[in-house]
C-alpha cells in the first residue's frame, strides 16, 4: 500500500467502524440480561445465552417468519425486475404517443408518501379477499416506480443503433429486450433486485396491517410483536431476535456485494 493511500484507508476504516458500531452494539446487547442491557459498553460484562435460549426454547416461530420474509422478498424482487425492466425499456426505447406523460406520472408517484396509500391499498386487497395471504405481501411491491426510473436512465445510454440492428435482423421488440437489454443490464437488474429484496424484507408497516395470523407474519412484524410490549420492551430479547432476523440480509449482502457495487457504479445511483 502506498503512503498516498493511507489517508483514504484511515478515513474508510473510521467510516467502517462507525457503520459497524450499531451491529456490534446490537450483538453485544443480545448477550446481556434484560435489566442490564443499557449498562456497560458493547462487550457484556456477564454474557448470557439466556435470550437466545428463550427464543429457541419457546414456541416463537422465528424460522417460519424468516422463511416468509425471504420467500416474499425473492418473489417480489423477481417480479419487480421483470416488470420494471419491461416498463423502462418501452419508455426509453419504444416510440408511442404519451410516452413522456406516462413516464412523468410514474416518476411523480415517487412523491406520494406510502402512508397516504395505506387505506386505499388495504381496501383494494380486502375487496379482492387477499388480506392475510402471501399475495398481499408480494403484489404491492411488484411494480416499483423507483426501479423503472433507475433502469430507464440506464437504458437511455444504450445506443439506438443496437436496437436498429436487431430490428434489421428481424428481432421482435420483446426479443430485443430479452437478447440485448437484459444481458447488458444484469448489474443494474441485480442492484434493483437486491434493493427490492432489502426493502421488502425490512418492511414493517404493510405486513403488519395486511396480515393477521401468526403463521403469516414476516420477521419484522413477528419480532416487534414478540419483544415490544405496551409499556415495557425486553430490549435484550429484542436484540437477540433482531440479530437472528438480520442474518439472511447480511448473507444476501455479502454474496451480492460485487454485483451491487457494480450496479451502483453503472447506474450512477447513490445509496
Amino acid at each position: 500500500m502506498s503512503i498516498k493511500k493511507l489517508p483514504v484507508v484511515i478515513v474508510l476504516v473510521i467510516g467502517s467502524i462507525i457503520m459497524i458500531f450499531p451491529i456490534l452494539s446490537l450483538l453485544g446487547a443480545s448477550f446481556k440480561t434484560h435489566t442490564l442491557v443499557f449498562t456497560g459498553g458493547i462487550i457484556p460484562q456477564h454474557p448470557t445465552l439466556k435470550n437466545y435460549a428463550t427464543i429457541f426454547s419457546s414456541n416463537i416461530p422465528l424460522l417460519r417468519w424468516i422463511l416468509n420474509s425471504i420467500s416474499v422478498s425473492i418473489i417480489a424482487s423477481l417480479i419487480v425486475v421483470v416488470i420494471d425492466s419491461l416498463a423502462a425499456y418501452s419508455l426509453a426505447k419504444l416510440k408511442f404517443a404519451g410516452r413522456n406523460v406516462i413516464f412523468y406520472v410514474i416518476v411523480s408517484s415517487l412523491m406520494i408518501p406510502p402512508i397516504a396509500t395505506l387505506i386505499p391499498m388495504y381496501l383494494e386487497f380486502s375487496s379482492a379477499n387477499l388480506l392475510n395471504t402471501y399475495w398481499v405481501l408480494v403484489l404491492p411491491y411488484s411494480a416499483n416506480a423507483f426501479g423503472i426510473f433507475l433502469l430507464y436512465q440506464f437504458y437511455l445510454g444504450i445506443p439506438d443503433e443496437l436496437v436498429d440492428a436487431a430490428k434489421v435482423d428481424g428481432s421482435s421488440k420483446f426479443r430485443t429486450w430479452i437478447s440485448i437489454f437484459v444481458p447488458l443490464s444484469t448489474a443494474s437488474l441485480a442492484t434493483l433486485g437486491l434493493l427490492t429484496f432489502m426493502n421488502v424484507y425490512n418492511d414493517f408497516f404493510w405486513p403488519l396491517v395486511s396480515t393477521n395470523s401468526n403463521g403469516m407474519r414476516t420477521v419484522t412484524v413477528g419480532v416487534a410483536l414478540t419483544a415490544i410490549g405496551q409499556y415495557t420492551t425486553n430490549y435484550a430479547e429484542l436484540m437477540a431476535l433482531t440479530f437472528c432476523s438480520i442474518i439472511p440480509m447480511l448473507l444476501a449482502f455479502i454474496f451480492a456485494q460485487r454485483k451491487l457495487t457494480q450496479g451502483i457504479s453503472t447506474t450512477g445511483f447513490n445509496l
Binding site: 416474499v72 388480506l131 395471504t133 393477521n212 395470523s213 403463521g215
Partner: peptide
Amino acid sequence: LSAATLAAITGCGTSSGNGNASG
C-alpha cells in the same frame, strides 16, 4: 428455480391462519 418458488408461493396463497385479516 423461479417457477418452483412461484409455485410454492402460489400453493401457499391462502393464509395458514384465520382466513382474512380480520378472521
